[in-house]
């Protein structure tokens, strides 16, 4: 059931395109959350170009799979992907962050087609995803719910309230993907407020847990397929990633959580993405 070589090649190309478009959008926006937008790319691309049961022509289709980008600051990487997937015209991205634009740093469900929940304040997404998964069960609907969390976000108590509830309600259609890039704004997650042993924590809360290289499509796909087979328990996939992935001068640099790019820097970033897209290299080693 794994991905074929040609599927992996197509997904890698798509990841490269989304990274490029993210850089361009940051330039138009005057700045953006580059680090986390680049670390989540493979997770988002794999969902949107391989797994999700969606119809971009009908963003409100009742039976669509649901996605909650709980790390809402990833919006500047999410919007280019939604545009590429056909939810809205790519030209609109040029207004990102502009006064009156539908796009701000944190995407608003009521303004951006394809966004299932307005996020931005950390610790809010997983509870909403739990509600969506409960809703699917109540309706007897087949949709699955995916929630993408930041690792630093897992400092929030509400994440663990929701983790407890998801296991209690046996929400096996819910999958949490944790973008484990190891950095929050002020430094490494382990220095600011240690998360490890993170997998053990999720396991102790009653979840199926797998830890994978979050930039390796095959590993990620295997984990998502396993989550889809799981019964009785929600699944947490800890995706080990590199913050700023693909742009050599941003990788693993807490300072690039948010930043702006002049034309020279943007060109360097695009060159780096193109240069490295063939040999993307592995994600972060397990801490």
């Amino acid at each position: 059931m794994g991905l074929t070589d040609s599927q992996v090649a197509t997904l890698k190309l798509k990841a490269q395109q989304i990274r490029r478009k993210t850089i361009e959008t940051v330039v138009w926006a005057g700045g953006g959350h580059l680090g986390g937008a680049l670390s989540q790319v493979e997770i988002m691309v794999l969902l949107y170009y391989h797994f999700l049961n969606i119809d971009p022509k009908r963003p409100d289709w009742a039976d669509r799979d649901r996605v909650v980008l709980s790390k809402g600051h990833g919006g500047i990487g999410y919007a280019p992907l939604l545009a590429d997937r056909g939810y809205f015209s790519e030209g609109l991205l040029e207004e990102f962050n502009h006064t009156g634009s539908p796009f701000g740093m944190h995407l608003d469900r009521l303004k951006v087609p394809g966004v299932d929940a307005s996020t931005g304040s950390l610790g809010h997404g997983l509870p909403m995803a739990v509600g969506m998964a409960l809703g699917a069960r109540l309706k007897g609907a087949a949709w699955r719910t995916y929630c993408i969390l930041g690792d630093g976000e897992c400092n929030e108590g509400s994440v663990w309230e929701a983790a407890m509830a998801a296991a209690h309600f046996r929400l096996d259609t819910l999958t949490a993907l944790i973008d484990r890039n190891g950095l929050c704004i002020d430094g490494t997650t382990e220095a600011i407020m240690a998360l490890e042993p993170l997998a053990d924590k999720w396991r102790a809360f009653g979840w199926e847990v797998t830890a994978v290289d979050g930039h390796d499509f095959r590993e990620l796909a295997g984990a998502i397929e396993a989550a889809r087979r799981s019964t009785g328990r929600p699944t947490a996939i800890i995706a080990r990633t590199v913050k700023g992935k693909g742009v050599d001068f941003m990788e693993d640099q807490a300072a690039w959580h948010y930043g702006g790019l002049d034309s020279e820097r943007a060109a360097l970033a695009l060159q780096s993405i193109d240069r490295r897209s063939d040999t993307a290299g592995p994600g972060r080693r397990a801490p």
């Binding site: 009742a62 469900r109 809010h124 809703g135 309230e161 929701a162 509830a165």
Partner: peptide, 24 residues
């Protein structure tokens, strides 16, 4: 159609939002 989420009010209002987003 009744959910007691335990002593976790923040989670409760988030779950309620998710259920509303699911059409309830």
């Amino acid at each position: 159609r009744f959910f007691n989420v335990g002593i976790a009010e923040q989670n409760m209002f988030g779950i309620a939002a998710g259920l509303a987003l699911a059409g309830f």
